[in-house]
């Protein structure tokens, strides 16, 4: 079979289109920040998106499903997912940095199934960074300050007591 220039050109464009579409499929849904979601929620309503952040507070399992709240550093958003997706995950708080996760799912500007909450119905929850304990640093100056002030209170109380005794005499 003779390969003409025309056939080669068609093949080139077909393979290029295939490569672009494959790349899009491999990259997964677009990762969106909370700022983008809050500033224009209508743009993403009903679309499949990715959202990355730390799980904060509680992992609230409710039967076969669970709610988690994911904070990307600016704002937090509710994520509704299957309970099996949150098994073994840790939420962050004062003493602990929660799991940093990537959730992928459908974004709802006002979810009709959840009383109008802005949420993501996630099909997958992937841990990017595991949770870890947070350091609780206490400034040495704070200890010194506490001792100094305790001394000042004692002095004041002694002076008040002395004043009262002198008055009685």
């Amino acid at each position: 079979m003779r390969i003409t220039l025309k056939t080669l050109t068609v093949l080139f464009f077909l393979s290029a289109a295939l490569a672009v579409s494959c790349r899009g499929a491999c990259a997964g849904p677009e990762t969106v920040s909370s700022s983008a979601l809050f500033s224009d929620p209508g743009l993403y309503d009903g679309r499949t998106i990715s959202f990355e952040g730390e799980i904060i507070g509680d992992i609230m399992k409710r039967g076969r499903y669970a709610w988690i709240n994911v904070n990307d550093g600016r704002s937090a958003i509710g994520v509704f997912t299957a309970a099996e997706n949150v098994a073994g995950l840790s939420a962050g708080g004062y003493k602990r940095q929660g799991d940093i996760v990537r959730v992928s799912g459908e974004f709802h500007r006002a979810c009709p199934g959840h009383g109008g909450d802005m949420d993501i119905h996630a099909g997958s929850v992937t841990v990017i960074i595991k949770s870890a304990a947070r350091e609780e640093a206490i400034c040495p100056a704070a200890r010194r300050m506490a001792v100094l002030l305790a001394g000042a209170i004692c002095l004041l109380l002694i002076s008040m007591l002395y004043g009262r005794l002198r008055k009685k005499r």
Binding site: I56, G57, W67, N69, S75, G78, G115, D117
Partner: peptide, 15 residues
Amino acid sequence: PQSQNMLYYHNYGME
């Protein structure tokens, strides 16, 4: 207690 205020709970009973 949380930054999302009452939205954190996703629960009508709480509301």
